[in-house]
Amino acid sequence: MSLGQKIGRLRQERGLTLQEVSEGSGLTPSFLSRLERDKVNISVANLRKLAQFFSVQMTHFFEGEDDQQLGQVVRVADRVRLSLDDAPVQVFSLLPPNSDLDARLIEAYPGSSQQGFSSRGSQMVHVLAGHVRYTLGEEQYDLAPGDTLFFRDDTAYSWTNTGHSIATMLTVSTLNPRDER
């Protein structure tokens, strides 16, 4: 896999647009598009910008898939933060970028909420701490520590931390078969 393909794959696995990567890295969307299609070369300084944006080591872009071990550990200190540092909802990726699953740890302040649309396949939400109200279409589910909610793709959802303390959730999503590489 070429360097450009690896960058494009990483962007897609994170669910980011070229514009979002552009804004976070300072590189233009047109340059990023040409880079992903292997139409231009990248300087070390610009590759460093992308590595910082994606929170990976620069060597990540040069590691061959054949070089990977059977298991991969993502240490707490190496988790990729998918949210702004001061956001009321903190989201951390729990798996390496080449995974066929998407697993996230979500920490939400009391009263914080989020909405989304599940288009990646099936999704599971497990509440580790706190109280959360999930809304799927017209249905509402009040979840407490230890509760697990499962729903399928193509579902609009929202949730709110209804408790008085930080709610911590584990979410795991499968890839939608039509999105597989």
Rank of each mutant, 00 (worst) to 15 (best):
D66Q: 11
D67T: 15
Q57D: 15
P88H: 02
S22E: 05
W159L: 01
L105Q: 07
F54T: 00
Y157K: 06
G26F: 05
L16Q: 06
Y134W: 07
E36V: 07
F117E: 06
S22C: 07
L10G: 03
T135N: 08
R81L: 12
A108V: 02
A51S: 13
V56L: 09
R104S: 09
V125T: 06
P177L: 10
E20Q: 11
E139H: 10
T162R: 03
V172M: 05
V44I: 14
E13K: 12
K6H: 09
G130C: 03
D100V: 15
Y141T: 09
L170I: 07
D100I: 13
S119N: 15
H126T: 12
R152C: 13
S2I: 08
S83M: 09
D38A: 15
L143H: 00
L170H: 05
T155H: 04
L10E: 02
P29F: 06
V127N: 00
K49F: 10
F150E: 10
A108I: 02
N41R: 13
D102A: 10
P177E: 09
L50E: 02
Q68E: 13
A129L: 09
L18V: 07
A51N: 06
L105A: 05
Q114G: 08
F54K: 00
L143M: 11
S119L: 11
A129Y: 05
L128M: 10
L18S: 04
G24C: 08
D147A: 07
S113M: 08
P97Q: 12
K49C: 08
N176S: 15
G71A: 12
D142T: 04
R181K: 15
S173Q: 12
E36G: 03
L35F: 08
